[in-house]
Design a protein around this nucleic acid. Structure first.
Length: 113
DNA sequence: ATAATGACTGGGG
DNA sequence: ACCCCAGCCATTA
């Protein structure tokens, strides 16, 4: 299984109303320095795909998309799930951050496919 | 096989 | 707290 697929698998575990960071996903997959690659993996997620790509933001609680279009789209999706953005466009990770998965849960997840 | 490409990060200034 | 910069890494536009 490719790294990208594993990324999609993990991201699919993030519950609505919660957010994770690129680095966090990378660490869960045992590649603590592949945060950029995680972003790359999400960039190509098709529109109707089940992967909740919008629930991933950067370590400072901000949206990392380049164009304004995408930013508003992601922010809108998150707000519709109850995630609150501060006036400067930041999310309080202490309040909305995802706990992640235990090592056991991770093993079970990667086991299939 | 090589080089280029980022939706990243942590540390320093 | 903010900006800049040097690592980092799977994939291949």
């Amino acid at each position: 299984m490719k790294f990208f697929d594993q990324v999609h698998l993990v991201v699919a575990q993030i519950p609505a109303g919660r957010v994770a960071t690129y680095g966090q996903i990378a660490r869960l997959l045992g590649q603590p320095h592949a945060a950029r690659t995680v972003g790359w993996a999400l960039r190509g997620v098709p529109e109707g795909c089940a992967v909740p790509w919008h629930r991933v933001v950067n370590a400072s609680g901000r949206i990392s998309i380049r164009d304004r279009q995408g930013i508003s789209v992601q922010q809108q999706l998150l707000e519709s799930e109850g995630v609150v953005f501060s006036s400067d466009g930041r999310i309080d990770l202490n309040a909305f951050g995802w706990d992640g998965l235990t090592e056991d849960e991770m093993r079970a997840l990667i086991a299939d496919s």
